[in-house]
Design a protein around this nucleic acid. Structure first.
Lengths: 165, 165
DNA sequence: CTCTGGTTTCACAAATTCGTGAAGTTACTG
DNA sequence: CAGTAACTTCACGAATTTGTGAAACCAGAG
């Protein structure tokens, strides 16, 4: 452990590990009851609150007091959903995990994928119910809403990018 | 059971219960791995696919093959998060549960509440980390993003309302 | 005021999820 | 070509969640 990064004193050095740790737990809890699995939520928050935005598996384990196996699983999930990138440091054995520079941008993109699944689901539903039935029409309206949402979200993210430039 | 509503033949009467039931399960599954608790997801989908958009506890139980207790719990959750309204039919013992006319509008409003919690969480985090640190700045940016998102979502919903009129 | 249909609450059992320890893999190092 | 550090996978035990049956509870009807 180099002690140069995220865990110990970094930059300004006014970081109180106890306070930060407590915050990590609180914020992770919020994510959890928004539907996040617990361990990924904790790892994600740990990364979010690291100055470098980039920690090794070992550092995460130490920070959160969990086994390497737990870190491994959580990280797999986060990479899967594109909130975290694995960085392979060519010439070292340690993997680093970096939170995306603009995480929330990525997160929104994921939302898009979920939305798409909902839409195909709804299309099936409309077929099953018949589009001329009240229920069918309700589903059709839902479908339309999601289409609308998808377009709007894309435009919204464009605006956000513009604003950040 | 009156047999007039949602469950049996309604309106056009071309509804195949087996097919619909299968769809309910599939779509509920999609909702589940978007973070929904299972039973609420099933009840919600059942309501979504009923022609009347309004079913009794008993009808839901029969439709989904679950106990009254399970329905009770699921419905409590759905009312809690404002996706379903309880209707008390003055002069009868049966409660009816109605899906909101424009469910997704309501759902978005809820999202707003969640967003607010995230924001307060982030404010705490910035305090814990110091706003002059890299991590603090990352959190601050996140906070700004969520603020942006909240405003944009509101405007978006206005546009949707407009479009539907 | 009692009877009865309907819903909710409670304690428990079943199923799932979660995290650990230990063994297994992979790939730098000497 | 070992030796070893780091990560991953696997099987298991613990804890949480989920749904059920049964009893309690409420409210309308006779």
């Amino acid at each position: 452990m180099g002690g140069t990064d995220g865990v110990g004193t970094d930059g300004v050095g006014r970081r109180d590990p106890a306070v930060v740790g407590e915050f990590v737990e609180r914020f992770a809890a919020v994510l959890v009851d928004a539907g996040f699995p617990r361990m990924p939520a904790r790892v994600f928050t740990a990364l979010l609150t690291s100055d470098s935005g980039r920690l090794t598996s070992a550092e995460l384990g130490e920070l959160l007091r969990v086994s390497p196996a737990a870190v491994s699983g959580a990280v797999r999930y986060l990479v899967q959903v594109d909130l975290v990138r694995r960085e392979h440091e060519p010439g070292s054995r340690r993997d680093h995990y970096r939170i995306h520079d603009h995480v929330w941008y990525e997160a929104t993109t994921n939302r898009d994928r979920t939305l798409a699944r909902w839409e195909t689901g709804l299309v099936e539903g409309i077929a099953a119910l018949g589009e001329d039935t009240p229920a069918g029409r309700r589903l059709a309206e839902s479908l339309e809403f999601f289409g609308f949402l998808r377009v709007e979200l894309a435009q919204m993210m464009d605006r956000w990018r513009a604003r950040r430039a």
